[in-house]
């Protein structure tokens, strides 16, 4: 798993690539929370390079989403590949996040 970070105005864009699986979930969650805790704007997670996601990866996004909601900030997702989108749809996560 790789994460590239860019500043986009007041928001942070995180370009994630690779596998959001159980072994990678904790480092992924820690990376997300580090951005949540050290920035003040919105966060956009670009999943174009993600080829696999399991419920552990979803959980990491939910933990970050909850922290952002508590802080009254916005976390959104973009560019999900079809199989990744299917996992979000089945688990109900498609309606929890703004996805573009």
């Amino acid at each position: 798993m790789q994460i590239e970070r860019e500043q986009a105005g007041e928001d942070v864009l995180l370009k994630v690539a690779g596998r959001l699986d159980t072994p990678n979930a904790k480092p992924f969650e820690a990376s997300l929370l580090e951005v949540v805790n050290t920035t003040g704007g919105g966060i956009v997670v670009d999943l174009a390079g993600v080829v696999y996601v399991s419920s552990s990866g979803l959980r990491a996004l939910l933990v970050a989403g909850k922290a952002m909601r508590t802080a009254k900030r916005k976390l959104s997702l973009k560019s999900l590949q079809p199989q990744i989108r299917e996992v979000f749809d089945i688990s109900g996560f498609s309606t929890l996040f703004e996805i573009s």
Binding site: L62, G65, G92
Partner: peptide, 8 residues
């Protein structure tokens, strides 16, 4: 099926 991030 949760309705919001808070409920999830």
């Amino acid at each position: 099926v949760p309705e919001s991030v808070e409920d999830a």
